[in-house]
């Protein structure tokens, strides 16, 4: 009885993580800046978040305050992502640089920088100088005081397997983002800057400021997504290995979701479901196991599945797909 709740749980966690990062991408592209550096920003968030948790464990604060310490670490992750993304914002908004170049630089810099940082910090503590920041401490997991027995039951697995404080926050982020984008003055202004910045400027909107906020939000959410990914996927962050292409996937989910929060959620759920199906395929009887083929074949086929499904779904839905009109084009006050 652990299969079905496990499947749903894995789908939800994975989808929520994709959603958060994709929402970050949405905010920046809606404001007119392409952020291809989400992957790098996630690595920065994950590394700084993990280092914070480690520090709290060392000074004993984690043992005492538990979830408060985790919450602070998550905030640190988000903020570090935000600060890191300012590098892109400065280059692409003030210097009018090519945004693809800036984002690519961010992607290359992050793993190298974090790797160097972690290896030089950790060599202070141990001679081995491990390059993985571990955070598998007892106080990190979020139990809400439920018993071990309940957590292994149907609903326990459904709700609390791999559960961290980031999960409810991610749901909140999706709700708030949807409201902010469509129902607030800021959201509408943000979208106008991505569609026709000159018109927006003539209506008294500060295009530079709005675009800075857009990129900053993407960094904030990508940093948060980074530490969330770390909670879900591993028990430690290895900056050298990065986040396994997750930032690029989020970018794909954002385009798949047509730059709209509701569609992004749907797209992420589809992708995450097939991803989870691959993970649990061996336990599901009616799925073919490809056991007549060489070992490893079935595994690879199921891993390939979410990508193929995404392509097929896109083929049927994308005719109406439309990117923000002025994304990737630096704002020029003098242009008409």
């Amino acid at each position: 009885m652990t299969l079905l709740p496990g499947l749903i749980n894995s789908t939800l966690l994975y989808a929520l993580c994709l959603v958060v990062v994709a929402l970050g991408g949405m905010f920046t592209e809606r404001s007119g800046t392409i952020n291809i550096g989400l992957e790098g920003t996630m690595i920065v968030g994950a590394t700084f978040g993990a280092l914070t948790i480690r520090a709290f464990n060392m000074n004993g604060f984690g043992e005492v305050a538990g979830q408060w310490a985790v919450l602070i670490a998550v905030l640190v992750a988000a903020l570090s992502g935000c600060i890191y993304s300012m590098l892109l914002a400065f280059a692409s908004i003030h210097m009018k640089a090519d945004q693809t170049i800036g984002g690519t630089a961010l992607n290359i810099f992050a793993p190298a920088f974090c790797y160097l940082l972690v290896s030089s910090i950790q060599s202070e503590f141990s001679s081995a100088g491990s390059t993985t920041v571990l955070f598998n401490y007892d106080w990190v997991t979020f139990n809400l005081g439920f018993s071990e027995e309940f957590r292994n039951s149907f609903f326990g697995i459904l709700l609390f397997k791999g559960f961290a404080i980031t999960t409810p926050i991610a749901i909140l982020i999706w709700i708030i983002s949807t409201i902010v984008l469509y129902k607030t003055r800021f959201g509408l202004r943000l979208m106008s800057c991505g569609e026709h910045p000159q018109a927006a400027a003539s209506a008294g909107i500060g295009v530079y400021t709005t675009r800075y906020i857009g990129v900053g939000l993407s960094g904030l959410l990508a940093g948060f997504g980074g530490i969330m990914w770390a909670f879900i996927a591993t028990s430690g962050v290895a900056p050298g290995a990065g986040v396994a292409g997750f930032g690029f996937l989020a970018l794909a989910v954002m385009i798949f979701g047509n730059w709209k929060p509701q569609n992004i959620l749907g797209a992420a759920l589809i992708f995450a479901f097939f991803n989870a199906l691959g993970k649990y395929s061996s336990g599901i009887d009616f799925l073919p196991s490809f056991s007549n083929l060489a070992q490893g074949t079935g595994d690879s086929i199921y891993k390939m599945l979410p990508y193929i499904v995404t392509l097929v779904v896109l083929a049927f839905t994308s005719k109406k797909s439309r990117a923000p009109k002025m994304e990737g084009i630096p704002y020029d006050k003098g242009a008409r």
Partner: peptide
């Protein structure tokens, strides 16, 4: 990894 730092800075 220092090489990646150089490369990314130059690209940036």
């Amino acid at each position: 990894e220092i090489v990646s730092v150089i490369t990314s800075t130059i690209i940036y």
